[in-house]
Design a protein around this nucleic acid. Structure first.
Length: 111
DNA sequence: AGCGTGACAAGGT
DNA sequence: GACCTTGCCACGC
């Protein structure tokens, strides 16, 4: 039942560099689906494991982890981010770690 | 068709 | 920051 949109979302998630995070809305825009932030959440929820997918790099626009603090998913995400050098303090990721495609291209140049 | 729900976002207080 | 309200859209009932 995966229409093409799910795959576009997964590709966009894979474009988030290690050590950075992106918001659901930013992923939606990068996938060519502006305004479908909630669809990103749905796609990640439905994502079959075994798929190579850095889902833990996707956080809310305000920098908070989308899961309830203390939940198993929350802890998994926090640890996977920490393993990449992304600190999660009080459930939030500092703005400095937010990936912005436009700024990234300015700093590193187009591939 | 309605209606509630959700790994959301933006704008206002 | 913390809330609250609106807008949003896919899904299941």
């Amino acid at each position: 039942m995966n229409d093409r949109r799910y795959d576009q979302i997964y590709q966009a998630v894979r474009r988030i560099p290690a050590g950075r995070v992106a918001s659901y809305g930013a992923v939606a825009r990068a996938a060519g689906l502006p305004g479908r932030a909630r669809l990103v959440g749905t796609a990640l929820r439905e994502a079959p494991d075994g798929l190579e997918l850095p889902w833990y790099r996707v956080v809310r626009a305000d920098g908070r982890i989308a899961f309830p603090p203390g939940s198993a998913s929350y802890e998994r995400q926090r640890e996977r981010l920490g393993a990449e050098g992304v600190p999660v303090t009080c459930g939030r990721i500092d703005r400095a770690f937010h990936w912005r495609e436009d700024l990234d291209r300015l700093l590193w140049g187009p591939e």
